[in-house]
Design a protein around this nucleic acid. Sequence first.
DNA 1: CTGAAAGCGCTTACAG
DNA 2: CTGAAAGCGCTTACAG
Lengths: 364, 364
Amino acid sequence: MVTMSEVAKAAGVSQAAVSYAYSRPSKVSSGQRARIFEVAEELGYHGPDAAGRSLRGGRVGAVGVMVMDSLGYAFSDPSNMQLLRGIAEEGELADVAVTLLPSPRPGPSDNKDPLGHRQASAGMRGLVDGVIIHNLPQGHAAVDAVIARGIPVVVVDSPKLRGVPYVGLDDRSAAASAAQHLLALGHRRIGILVDRLAPDGRSGVASPSRISHASDRVARARVQGYLQQLEASGIARSSVPVIEAGGFQLEDYAKASGQLLDDYDVTAILVASDVMALEAMSVATQRGLSIPAELSVVGFDDAPGAAEAGLTTVSQPMVEKGRIAAQLLLKAIATGELGSVLLPTEFIVRSSTARPQKRQSGSR
Amino acid sequence: MVTMSEVAKAAGVSQAAVSYAYSRPSKVSSGQRARIFEVAEELGYHGPDAAGRSLRGGRVGAVGVMVMDSLGYAFSDPSNMQLLRGIAEEGELADVAVTLLPSPRPGPSDNKDPLGHRQASAGMRGLVDGVIIHNLPQGHAAVDAVIARGIPVVVVDSPKLRGVPYVGLDDRSAAASAAQHLLALGHRRIGILVDRLAPDGRSGVASPSRISHASDRVARARVQGYLQQLEASGIARSSVPVIEAGGFQLEDYAKASGQLLDDYDVTAILVASDVMALEAMSVATQRGLSIPAELSVVGFDDAPGAAEAGLTTVSQPMVEKGRIAAQLLLKAIATGELGSVLLPTEFIVRSSTARPQKRQSGSR
DNA sequence: CTGAAAGCGCTTACAG
DNA sequence: CTGAAAGCGCTTACAG
């Protein structure tokens, strides 16, 4: 590997001069700078090595993104992709690389190596100048570790932490508006589907206590927004079935959807994410229910595919969310300034919702 | 930041002992190791810093992925996503982070900073232990730079380089089989659509010379495979229109599709990628052509959405491709062993192809 | 504007 | 099994 010293020797200048040529152009004459670059090119020197620069206190030139559970999930969920795209678009402006950090799965036994010591994930050990955390549960060990490391952090969606820049939505109000839409159409027998309230592997009917203690903040806020609005219209919380998928796989979604449709007599469902709502629609259709005549479905996110499927949903600007998170992080890295942003949502009515059919309760 | 020395002092051992505790467990007694970890935890030490370790010659613990043009594109193309997913799935096994490197766009003036010096992108300067290059054109400066750096590299799809591990398909044969399918159905007036043959901004009708000199290896191989098979059935290359989109945006695809349908009287089109084929189908439908009755369309990739759209296509295992590329890279990093893999493809007939309608040439 | 020197945190021969 | 020492490539006060 060609180093600065070699370039300096060949160019007849000090090693520091070469460093300045790359990182502090104002400290060397432009003639000398040109000469140094010429020699560097001849020798095949491609610029300061990241490790050396970083060790000395400089920037690495990369930001990290911590995503839920696994990188595989990060690359298959479409909303997540939009977020990453937004981050990438902003990142390019500042010439950074995006590093995706797998966040170790938490579990009853926590995440230890074979010797019982808690491993820091690769990205927490200096690979990045800052980290964007996307939708991790409250109390997640990986979040604590990154905060403890003291590098700049921006949280998207969850968890909300004191003094940490945050980008998100008013999930609760947006969810309330979704519920209001169904109420205005005349629905009274409404079910709720949610992907995951806490990373503990539980699924099925979610109790009021489980909902109020849910560590997945976004899921909790949405479900509470739904329930709050229904309650305001005189529908008791206890009469509204809330079914949790317990994971993010399509099979999890399908199972929860099936449970809701089989066990409860509802004319409409509120689904806390579009990917899950699309799966619910497909399950309902398979069961011979026609949408929206026999079942209304409302999603959340306006994810790719929602418009095509005619899904009524809460639209949120995911790409913009990523872009803003990147901006906030870059600002925190460069200036230490901290800022948070709440983005607006828009309720979009499509063809998956309609007035309930006139029929007797329990007619199915 | 807590360092090894501080942990060592607090634990009453040498700094080297702490290093060994983390990186060479066999060099310290398990009692001492436990004691060191205990002290580290108390002090909030999260393991060796990546910069220091990397500088000294160790592993960074991250692999890079170089993608076409821009990170934004990387996060919007569905086939690319599948590849990344495959890489990520394999990466998790080895506890690596995936770093996406924006590859600087090449152009007539090459890629220079304001002072005219060629910048190495962040990821080429030591941020990663190895790099997976995905589908870059031959002669791309970023590829040369990465190879020159001497770090382990695996190329997916393009370019093919002597002595560099490679994962790809037999694109030419697979394309030939796609053409053969149309010939067997009885088509004789066939057009070809391709996304990009070279990153020079040109679009529209591609001449034989442009095709044979195309630097985008995969696009070239597929087009040549089509033409070769058609020629073998007595259809002169010069009579087959080849339209190039010149970019990867849906608008580019739509424009090229429109040009082919407007200017040439074809009963079928061979499209060198599914994303473009889906766009071509949509353009054809907008023009009132019914598929497959009036126009047969064959794609390539079996990308997400192809099955739903009923697109007849060449299926390739994109996720597997990523997984294998990651395996090869990890092996190259760990052992220096180099290996290449050609993956099989499968031709899948769906509902976008049929026998041509009986009609006079030029009846439209 | 230029150069000599210190030191960032770490790993690994090497000597005990 | 343990420890003292060298040095990876770099940036940045500091002195000229």
